[in-house]
């Protein structure tokens, strides 16, 4: 999914992670986490007509995603890419309460992640998507009203189910990549995105692979550029310190 997606990513990934890998995209607000996930999935799909992907958004609406991606020149291939808008669905069924935090009401999200596309849909055939993005892990976890220990078990179960279904997943995490969270150890890969402000007049967006099990990859950060054709990987970032 990575090497054959956005331009330049093949320079960072020397091989393709095994199918069913779970990769986190971690970064602070405004670092293009969602855009990167959309860009990777959509550009991969444009080149692989038989593949399908689902993007699950829990807090931001589909409309907002589409508007933002359009502004970045990222287009979604019709009949291959579908955004499941949990944010709007939640509002549709319960605009004023938080009953989804009850575990028994929560299961539908797990079911939705693994459900084949509808029988009547344009995607048809009951095909399972083999690619998935979840936006975001923070929003997903906020749906649980349980202590940290139980949450950790829940997350292990969640990742295990994704692997079992061999769904290659991108999980967006909002936060400081330097702050360790237990989930970093549960997933196969961690990609950090950020803004290098070493030169305040010229801040630069970057992407760096922190971890990728079973896959040779570059350790150095690369520039993440917004171009007319969407996102592209630029040159290695010189003088970057962490």
């Amino acid at each position: 999914m990575f090497r054959d997606s956005i331009k330049g990513l093949e320079r960072i990934f020397h091989a393709e992670p095994p199918s069913g890998s779970i990769t986190m995209i971690v970064g602070k607000p405004g670092t293009l986490k969602s855009s990167l996930a959309h860009a990777i999935l959509s550009s991969y799909l444009w080149k692989h007509k038989g593949e399908k992907a689902v993007y699950i958004t829990i807090e931001e609406t589909e409309e907002s995603h589409i508007r933002n991606m359009r502004s970045l020149g990222i287009a979604f291939p019709k009949n291959q890419y579908f955004i499941k808008d949990i944010a709007s669905f939640k509002f549709e069924i319960a605009p004023e309460n938080d009953f989804l935090q009850d575990d028994k009401h929560f299961n539908f999200i797990m079911q939705e992640i693994s459900k084949p596309f509808g029988l009547y849909s344009a995607l048809a055939d009951g095909d399972f998507p083999r690619l998935m993005a979840l936006d975001s892990l923070n929003a997903f976890q906020n749906l649980f009203l349980i202590d940290a220990r139980r949450l950790r078990f829940r997350m292990q179960d969640f990742f295990q189910r994704l692997r079992h279904k061999r769904i290659s997943s991108l999980i967006i995490v909002e936060g400081d990549p330097e702050e360790m969270i237990p989930e970093y150890f549960m997933v196969d890969g961690v990609i950090e995105v950020g803004i290098d402000r070493s030169h305040p007049q010229m801040p630069k967006r970057y992407i760096v692979v922190r971890k990728m099990r079973g896959t040779k990859h570059e350790m150095a950060p690369y520039m993440l550029n917004i171009t007319e054709n969407g996102l592209e990987i630029g040159e290695p970032l010189i003088g970057w310190k962490k």
Binding site: F89, I93, A94, F108, Q111, E112, K115, G118, L119
Partner: peptide
Amino acid sequence: ETFISRDAAILLFIK
């Protein structure tokens, strides 16, 4: 349920 998951269908219908 042919379009969405069982739990989502039940929730939506009840609401």
